[in-house]
Amino acid sequence: MSVGGTALEGRLRLALGAVAVAGLAVSGYLTAVRASGGTPACAIATGCAQVQQSAYSEVAGVPVAVLGLLAYAVLLATAILGREAARIGGLFTALVGAGFSGWLTYVEIGIIDAVCLWCVVSASLMAIAVALTATRVWLSGASAREVAPAAEVSERPLP
């Protein structure tokens, strides 16, 4: 196992963990705001009222803020776990999160005509998560390629 690869993997996991915690904070806040009767307390961006009260703020009855909360919780778990399944699962979760966030951002700009700053922050976090998880998967593949020739070498008879 390449030492450099492991250290980088560790740093990627740390960064992914930080992104997940930040995402949990944002989606947790939006979930709490929504639970309090749809009263947006976000003074920074006026669009929050419209976005949070829109019919697009739910998917099959589940508030999108709750979906975000779940996604970030899974991302955090994949950052903590070091197995192959965690790497692939992290990439999958980040891709779903970023893809759906992309759609919601389109809805904000194209349909509701109001942008919620918190939602944009979350969409950006998901985009960063895709970059981190993709690098993590690619890196572990690269280190596997490094390992393979080394294994061949070790099989040679020593002089």
Partner: peptide
């Protein structure tokens, strides 16, 4: 992931 996003978008 693409399939799941598609389903979510359709539901949304």
């Amino acid at each position: 992931a693409a399939v799941v996003v598609g389903v979510l978008v359709a539901l949304s």
